[in-house]
Amino acid sequence: MKQMNWKELPHAGTVLKAGNANEYKTGSWRTYKPKWVEENCIQCLFCWIYCPDSAVVVKDEKMTGFDYDHCKGCGVCAMECPGKKGNKAIVMEEEGK
C-alpha cells in the first residue's frame, strides 16, 4: 500500500473501510500449517468457532478448508478437532514441507 501524505489522511485518522485488515496477510507468520483430512471430518465446525483468525472457511454449513492468507498456524483447530474414530480431520504439518 502506498503511504499517504498528511493531506491525504482520512479526517481524524478514522479508518473508513470496515474489515480492511483482511487485506493484510498474516499467513507468513506460520511455522506449522493445518491440513484438512476430509475423510475424517464430521463437520462439527469446532475448528470454525474456535479459530482466532477467522481462517476456517465454511460454506453451506460445511467446513471446506483454510484461509491460508490469514491462518497463523496456532493449531487450536487441530487440538479441538474430535475427528472420526480417533483420527483427526485436522493435522499440523511443518510449513514449507
Binding site: 474489515g19 480492511n20 485488515a21 483482511n22 487485506e23 493484510y24 496477510k25 498474516t26 507468520w29 506460520r30 463437520q43 462439527c44 465446525l45 469446532f46 470454525w48 468457532i49 474456535y50 479459530c51 482466532p52 483468525d53 477467522s54 481462517a55 465454511v58 454449513e61 484461509d67 492468507d69 490469514h70 491462518c71 497463523k72 498456524g73 496456532c74 493449531g75 487450536v76
Partner: peptide
C-alpha cells in the same frame, strides 16, 4: 454452529493478535 455459520464474521482475519490468542476467539 451450523446455523451460526451463515452469519457474517464481524472480526476479519488479518489482525495482529498473537498466534493462538484466546481473545479474538472470544470477540468472534
Amino acid at each position: 454452529l451450523k446455523s451460526l455459520s451463515h452469519k457474517k464474521d464481524n472480526l476479519s482475519g488479518g489482525h495482529r493478535m498473537c498466534s493462538g490468542c484466546g481473545a479474538p476467539t472470544v470477540v468472534r
